[in-house]
Design a protein around this nucleic acid. Structure first.
Length: 583
RNA sequence: GCACCCGUAGCUCAGCUGGAUAGAGCGUCGCCCUCCGGAGGCGAAGGUCACAGGUUCGACUCCUGUCGGGUGCGCCA
């Protein structure tokens, strides 16, 4: 919608240039905004204000010239010049009605697909091997998955990259301990991940107390890194146990990651020596105290000298900076990424900036391929302190999801008495997962954020249950109408203000999907859907659909209602949230 | 010490590429059920956008500084 107005304005600019009213070399960034106040029309541009100075003209006078030179268009009802020189556009209702008609007949609600589909790598979730997923993995997993769904919807090729923590010195003791367990006759495949947590502690304890065990563990680290087949097999078992457990969590959360999307740190090991050698060859890495270090002028250490980033330890080992350099290189060169998005917590920001700074200097990824860090903070409890169990431990994701379902079940049992038990279970599950996910998705803070059960499970405000409820309410009306709305040919008539407002909100869906894709920010979709639901509720109050309405009005309003439901369910599905027919 | 992120209503959060009178929900107070789902709607009160300068026709938004909070800074990941 904005684009169409922009095109009209561009043509006007071209015309004015040819008339020497605007300088030939002027290339203004044409900005079209939705107005906050209806008195200012539906859309507005500040074009005349921006170009007044270079054109040497009074802004209002210039605005008039722009309006006079706008091409004829069916979508604009009229234009007005307001304030210091804004041009306000009033949309034509017949045009709006046609747009809504087209939306309701299109499987993707007339969302404009990407003109040039890209290959986009999205790095998200990233749990660790031999550890259960905990609340710290929630945000990355959920936000990343929503962005992935949105990008795919627009036609991009998305590579889901689950950068699991599957490498490090701790694997020596884990392998040694797995050996002990297998000696006692337990098959690795039968180990549950919850046992694996205990297993991890057991390994650590043995490592600390048993010198012979520790020696063996250290030996295994060396052998594993050297590609030893036995150690590799044992390592693989640990990875597989973890992946299959995590898969259950992803499935339950309706996260689209599969086991085959795991692209762990270990995958880049083979690249590391050549990266360091190349950095040295390029003169970027130098030896310092036995280690290989890249000095970056843009980062200073405590003495004010360029900060050194170690890419290889003096014992020959590699650190995660080198892995992240290799990883970015791989994603560009091997996966053919046009864009890479990282959903990783904000504590790693500086580290990523350093790694990418080296990546750019070494020429591994060209500047035109964006590497984007989408950061977020820690999860805090309602009291503003880190979100922990009563005993102060880390909250496991499984426990969090269980609690969400328990809470949702209580609410459903109380409020959805007309559903049978199975329907109640299903509703509770959808509400619980929706609430948890939406609570994360709807926040844009890069800083710490507050996790509050009462807020997220509320049926009012910007929450998943509110949107799910709005959807079921519409479904209820459509059921009651008892006609196939998709077969209606009645045009959508926008008479009442509330109908126009709803219609205008509906056609913003396409812009919203693109906003989420371009910025990697799903909260824009949340805000939009909340506003849409609000616009529908106002319409619903003001415009009777089934009663006190003419045949024509009834059909038109049913179509509007059905389209609203279509957009809500589609929008929520892009966020990975389910809707229900009844709740 | 240096760097990064943040500071918007009592609380939780929006505020797009700088645009017109800074918006929601909760909580507080009021109104609306002979009405298609009241799990709803309408309204009121509540703001020095941390503070001070600067740029601009115009700043919550950009720049500089100060204060406050969080996080990270050479051989873990």
């Amino acid at each position: 919608m904005k684009e169409l107005i922009q095109q009209l304005l561009e043509q006007a600019v071209t015309t004015l240039k040819s008339q020497q009213i605007l300088p030939e070399d002027l290339a203004p960034r044409i900005q079209v905004d939705r107005t906050k106040d209806k008195a200012h029309g539906d859309l507005a541009t500040n074009l005349a204000l921006m170009t007044a100075k270079p054109a040497g003209k009074n802004p209002r006078e210039l605005a008039q010239l722009i309006c006079d030179n706008l091409p004829e268009s069916t979508l604009v009802e009229k234009t007005e010049i307001a304030g210091p020189g804004f041009i306000n556009f009033y949309l034509n209702n017949a045009w709006l009605s046609e747009q809504l008609d087209a939306m309701s007949r299109d499987a993707k609600s007339n969302v404009k697909l990407a003109d040039a589909p890209q290959t986009i790598v999205v790095d998200y979730s990233a749990p660790n091997v031999a550890k259960e997923m905990h609340v710290g993995h929630l945000r990355s997993t959920i936000i990343g998955d929503a962005v992935v769904r949105t990008l795919e919807f627009l036609g991009h090729k998305v590579v889901r990259a689950n950068h699991i923590g599957d490498w490090g010195t701790q694997f020596g003791m884990l392998i040694a301990n797995l050996e002990e367990v297998e000696k006692q006759g337990t098959d690795a495949g039968s180990i549950e991940l919850s046992d694996l947590e205990a297993f991890y502690r057991e390994a650590k304890q043995r490592y600390d107390s048993d010198e012979e065990f520790a020696v063996r563990a250290r030996n295994y680290v060396v052998k594993l890194q050297g590609g030893d087949e036995y150690c590799n097999t044992m390592w693989r078992k640990l990875v597989d146990i973890t992946l299959s457990h995590n898969q259950a969590v992803y499935n339950r959360l309706n996260v689209s990651l599969q086991m085959s999307d795991a692209m762990g740190e270990s995958q880049y090991n083979a690249m590391l020596p050549e990266i360091v050698a190349d950095l040295e060859k390029q003169g970027l890495a130098v030896e310092d105290n036995g280690a290989k270090v890249v000095f970056l002028d843009e980062y200073k250490n405590k003495d004010g000298d360029p900060m050194g980033v170690i890419v290889q330890k003096k014992d020959g080992g590699f650190l995660y900076t080198t892995t992240d350099i290799a990883c970015a290189k791989y994603r560009y060169q091997q996966l053919g990424a046009d864009r890479v998005l990282y959903f990783i917590d904000s504590r790693q920001h500086q580290h990523l900036m350093q790694a990418w700074s080296i990546v750019r200097k070494a020429g591994y990824v060209p500047e035109e391929v964006p590497l984007e860090h989408h950061a977020f903070g820690m999860m805090l409890g309602k009291d503003g302190r880190p979100f922990k169990t009563r005993s102060g431990g880390t909250v496991k994701l499984v426990d969090l999801l269980n609690e969400a379902e328990e809470r949702a079940q209580q609410i459903v049992a109380e409020k959805s008495r007309d559903l049978n038990e199975q329907e109640q279970q299903q509703a509770a599950k959808a509400i619980a997962m929706g609430a948890v996910k939406y609570a994360d998705l709807s926040k844009n803070r890069t800083t710490d954020y507050i996790f509050d059960w009462d807020n997220m499970l509320a049926f009012n405000g910007n929450t998943a249950p509110y949107l799910q409820y709005a959807y079921t309410r519409i479904q209820s009306i459509l059921r009651r109408a008892d006609i196939d709305v998709s077969s209606l040919t009645q045009t959508i008539e926008l008479e009442h203000d509330a109908e126009i407002a709803l219609g205008q909100k509906l056609i913003q869906f396409s812009d919203t999907v693109h906003g989420v894709a371009n910025k990697g920010m799903p909260h824009m979709m949340c805000n939009y859907l909340y506003e849409l639901a609000g616009a529908f509720m106002s319409f619903y109050e003001a415009c009777p659909i089934l009663k006190n309405a003419s045949e024509q009005q009834q059909q038109s309003r049913l179509r509007l209602a059905a389209l609203t439901a279509q957009v809500i369910t589609q929008g929520l599905s892009l966020l990975g949230i389910e809707t229900l027919e009844r709740m």
